[in-house]
Design a binder for these strands. Structure first.
Lengths: 161, 161
DNA sequence: CGAAGGGGGTTCGTCAAGTGAACCCAGCGG
DNA sequence: CCGCTGGGTTCACTTGACGAACCCCCTTCG
């Protein structure tokens, strides 16, 4: 244990919150609707009107969130032209955006566990190749799958001072 | 592939967003400061004044977020008394709160990858038992570790209609 | 040709939420 | 009794979300 009493806890003065990666990530995708936009993007939605319809978000907000996500490099605004139609553009996930997938999965798994009324997740994730259900796990470089947060020790990289 | 063009994408009309677990989870912890409060809780912070000091959040907001998280069962308000001091109370993670750990880790890993200026994560997670670094992974019930979001297929549990 | 319609927005008035400073109260130490 | 500390609440102000209305571009239809 440690002064704070949690396994894995870090003495509070020892690390610099101002560069915390959680806060940084939330500065990019933490505004209202941003993560829901990304959820839809992962489900294949690409066009403004479709985002607007499935999310029900105010157009102005949606417009702002999409612009922000594009500016951050999480989405990409791509022009395209279906035959017989005029040119449009669509929003696609970049690699940077695709790498947010675990965060969405983590939020989804928690909601499935604690919020689903009937105990049934509305959406299930399966391995494309083998069809088995998929879940997030913490694994260490030695190959152990950790049972929970208690098995994790947080180590600040730059000591105080 | 599918109509939307993404591997794993779900035809848009096929599932009901209103019960989406991502949205549900964000309704619980998606307000400003909530996830940062939980980050500190995982690092061992427990008292109001400590949250306030390390986060720099307005007291009124912090007060509201803590109350909300307690009401949601993510934190627990526990009275305690150190010797020679008057009775105080502290905020502790419940199991429901501890289960949000993967979500925070996912956000942290993304920030480490894309936002750390020097390429060095400010905080590293290690396995308590073997000391090896730890990371989040998608694993399927057959034991495969998935390489990325593209290997995931989302299956709605309740068909349209 | 002009009208209609849909995609992709912006603008505007209103209302909720976040912010910082000030204030409050209980309990303890002197 | 005075002042200090922890844990808040209240208040005035600014920022952000909301819904409705409006706008432009391009295409199709009459």
């Amino acid at each position: 244990m440690n002064p704070a009493g949690y396994p894995g806890a870090v003495s509070e003065a020892v690390w610099d919150r101002s560069r915390c990666s959680v806060a940084g990530t939330l500065a990019v995708v933490g505004e209202k609707w941003s993560l829901l936009v990304l959820r839809e993007a992962f489900l294949g939605v690409r066009r403004f009107a479709d985002f607007q319809r499935v999310l029900g978000a105010p157009r102005a907000v949606l417009s702002d969130r999409l612009a922000t996500l594009v500016a951050q490099g999480v989405l990409q605004r791509v022009p395209y032209q279906a035959e017989g139609e005029r040119q449009r553009h669509e929003y696609r996930l970049t690699q940077k955006g695709i790498d947010l997938h675990p965060a969405l999965v983590a939020l989804m798994e928690w909601g499935d566990r604690y919020l689903a009324e009937d105990g049934e997740a509305p959406l299930e994730l399966r391995h494309r190749d083998c069809g088995e259900p998929v879940h997030l796990a913490l694994v260490c470089a030695a190959g152990h799958e950790l049972a929970g947060a208690r098995e994790v020790r947080a180590v600040p990289r730059v000591p105080a001072g």
